[in-house]
Computed example of a mutant assay.
Amino acid sequence: MNTPAAPLRVLIVDDEPLARLRLAQLVREVSAGGDPAAEVAGELGQAQAALDWLARQDADVLLLDIQMPGLDGTALAARLQALPRPPAVVFVTAHAEHALRAFELEATDYLTKPVRRERLQAALVRVARRSAAPGATATVLPVIVVSERGRLVRVPVADVLYLKAELKYVTLRTATHTYVLDDALSEIEQRLGDSFLRVHRNAIVAKAAVSALERRASEEEGAEGWAVRVGSSGEWLAVSRRQVGAVREALTASGL
């Protein structure tokens, strides 16, 4: 006979008393259904108080607000990573613009207020599954989080063909979709790692998406210049003169 798993210990950290009350009630509702079993281990209104609390006892998951007086939620999440057994973090906030930073901190989930019980349940189920296999390393797929028509979309980095700065925005292109981001191209580049290649001051391309490097007429350079062909779409992106050598070297190393 299998021994029932211990309830998840949930610590709620939010500076708004009504928000804490609402989350506590939702946790109880989820636990009443048994999937997963969970209990509210504590309710706190400040991030520093949460650090002090965690120094004395354990929690399996934090339901964590972001914008709070003093230490904010993302700063707290960053500090938690130094703990020997850091709790999972589920951000709960009214501010969708913090989603990218949240996933950089490897948050288990990101819920926007008002929180629905079904969404909280899904987040807690994810935490429970990871807790059930403490020796396993959770796989977190790299994503770029974008806002589209008021909803958050997680675009796997593996699906990205290129990113291109245009006027005040950055265009992210996949094989099937185009997204618009507010982030600076240089900031995005730092998060992508060496699977992407800077080909121009305004463009970064996935190495795996490049199918050719050729000399072509370039509108951006004002004359014939180098360009890379990207993906099955056959799109061409200009390669600046200063980047040609690095692009050719990188593509040769990758077998192109």
Rank of each mutant, 00 (worst) to 15 (best):
H177Q: 15
G225A: 12
V244N: 00
L152M: 00
L256D: 05
A41E: 13
A96I: 13
L172M: 13
R216G: 13
A123V: 04
L167A: 15
L120P: 04
A59W: 05
D183V: 01
R198W: 11
T137I: 13
T252K: 14
A37F: 09
A217P: 14
A75T: 04
E29G: 05
E235W: 06
D58R: 14
D109A: 08
E118A: 15
Q190W: 00
L237P: 02
A123T: 05
Q46G: 08
D15Q: 08
G255L: 06
W236Q: 01
V92I: 03
D35N: 15
E187I: 06
A6E: 15
V140S: 05
V10C: 09
V143P: 04
L167V: 10
R215L: 14
E219T: 10
V30F: 06
P7H: 07
P142I: 05
L185T: 12
V115Q: 03
A138T: 06
T252F: 10
Q67G: 01
H95A: 09
I204P: 00
P17W: 02
V127P: 07
E189G: 03
G42I: 11
R116I: 02
R149V: 03
Q121M: 13
L11D: 08
E220N: 07
G150M: 04
A132W: 09
A6P: 15
L192R: 11
E187H: 09
Y110F: 14
A209E: 08
S31D: 04
A50W: 03
K207W: 01
Q81W: 13
S211I: 07
R79G: 13
Q243N: 07
E148R: 10
Q48C: 10
E189R: 05
A175K: 09
A133R: 14
T171I: 07
R22F: 09
V205G: 07
L80P: 07
R56P: 00
D52F: 00
A19H: 04
A24D: 05
T108Q: 11
D14N: 08
D35H: 11
V180Y: 09
L8W: 02
K164R: 14
L256R: 14
R215N: 12
A138K: 09
D72F: 06
R248M: 05
R56L: 12
P7Q: 11
L163H: 06
E43F: 07
D194S: 13
R229G: 02
E187P: 00
D35G: 11
A19N: 00
K207P: 03
V160E: 07
Q121A: 15
T176S: 14
G42K: 10
E148T: 04
R56H: 14
L237Y: 06
E16Q: 12
W226S: 10
R151I: 00
A94Y: 05
P7S: 09
A227Y: 10
E43A: 11
D60F: 03
A78V: 10
L192H: 04
R191K: 12
T74V: 11
D194K: 11
G222A: 13
R56N: 10
L62M: 10
E166F: 03
T176M: 13
R215G: 12
A55R: 11
Y162N: 07
R130Q: 14
G70V: 11
A59N: 12
A41T: 02
V30A: 01
L251H: 08
V13D: 02
A184R: 15
T178F: 07
A41W: 04
E214T: 06
